[in-house]
Design a binder for these strands. Structure first.
Lengths: 234, 234
DNA sequence: CGTTCGATTGATGTCAGTCAACCCGAGTGG
DNA sequence: CCACTCGGGTTGACTGACATCAATCGAACG
């Protein structure tokens, strides 16, 4: 069996700088400079990476794993804002302003992160405008995703909202399969509910409905170790 | 009486480059270079500036006036995403990617805009990384606003959603007044409804409720020439 | 085998959307 | 000056969809 990921410190560092889209335009000498500045951390599933209201020390990039970004609302509900995985970054809001985090971040699975201190990163940003452009592109696509979310939340048809979120997961994590696109859901029913602002029971019901209509097919409904999977049919 | 705004072409150009936060870090020589590249246009109230799906030629900056950014949904509703006014910019999404506009933009009042062609702007961006940083900051605060919107849409308490949007307007357009913060609403009831995803009647009812509770006070309810105003009480 | 936790299902209540009527101020035109 | 229309705002009654509450199920795990 081939060992797919080398676990030594150096390779992980390399991976981080090389795999991440925002550094992709730099040559390897420049990437090495970044590598030398990176601080690594490992979080286990369920661990809190950032607590809403705390201070952020720098830009955080996910090297391996998956996290949810969320807020706990006054009403006691949890609103999930983003699901981030390998290559995604966060903490960018606080690179310039000195404000507290506006959200909490929790590891959905065991997760390796790389951190670049605010001051270091600012230096790079001025030296390599292309990094800034990459970040802008990413921020723009996040804006677009949030705009889509708001549109679909404003338009109220709950069933299509559930469909949309499954479709979003299919695009990001789906694998081609003869029966359709196979998705390992990153979230439980409750998680999905918190992502799109519904009650968990409603998500349950609507997913059954989508299955009855032949749009999706659920497999291993119950938690087989992680969440259930879904086929998005063609 | 002092003429507050000079209407000659040059001054308007100057204003545009000087007033806009994203160019604020440049010295006047650099600003003049930008000025020379700007294309100006005037739109009258109600006029469409951008149609969803059309091609964008560059970055657009609002010099004077106010616009709404929205999408027409399949269900026949209009979802307003942003209200932009003097100094705000849009079209940034298409500076790098060559995609069609994902929203329409309409002038809410007579509006002067300045446009910088995509290619010109990209050059500036690479020359002055600070511009990029300013844009990133602005994109981040838009993200934050959308995140707030999503949280409040997900959390469903309709009355506080109406309150939040009034508070947002108060922060952006409010003037101090002995009775509270005076806001000239940029949107009609229907507009507000389309902004936060409610029915116009519901907005009406909830605003009355907020008034009964002594949180706001409405003046000149009916359209006296533009929209009604509101005091946000202390 | 019992416990736990997520998912499901059913019954019920509530709140916002919808439909319809009406109000009111502003134009308009005779 | 008055009658008319027009458009936004308001109000009331009704309805339906989703939240809520409660019970049950079923897989995983000790």
């Amino acid at each position: 069996m081939i060992k797919q990921i080398c676990n030594c410190e150096n390779c992980q560092h390399q991976l981080c700088a090389r795999r991440v889209p925002i550094f992709s335009t730099m040559d390897s000498g420049e990437q090495n400079r970044i590598v030398s500045l990176i601080i690594r951390r490992l979080y286990t599933k369920g661990e809190l990476i950032i607590l809403e209201g705390s201070n952020l020390e720098g830009l955080i990039i996910i090297n391996r794993g998956q996290v949810k970004v969320f807020r706990d609302t006054l009403e006691g509900r949890e609103q999930i804002l983003y699901i981030f995985s390998e290559g995604d970054f966060f903490g960018e809001k606080n690179l310039f302003r000195n404000e507290q985090a506006t959200y909490s971040v929790e590891a959905l699975e065991d997760t390796n992160i790389c951190m670049i201190k605010k001051s270091d990163f600012q230096k790079f940003l001025r030296e390599y405008p292309d990094i800034g452009i990459k970040i802008m592109e990413e921020l723009c696509s996040r804006l677009e995703r949030l705009e889509n979310t708001i549109e679909s939340m404003g338009v109220k048809n709950v069933e299509s909202r559930v469909g949309s979120v499954l479709f979003e997961f299919a695009e990001r994590y789906g694998k081609e399969h003869q029966r359709g696109i196979m998705i390992e859901l990153p979230l439980s029913r409750e998680g999905i509910a918190n992502y799109i602002g519904l009650a968990r029971e409603t998500v349950s019901r609507k997913m059954n409905l989508l299955q009855d209509e032949g749009i999706i097919e659920m497999i291993g409904n119950k938690s087989v170790s992680g969440n259930c999977s879904v086929y998005f049919k063609r």
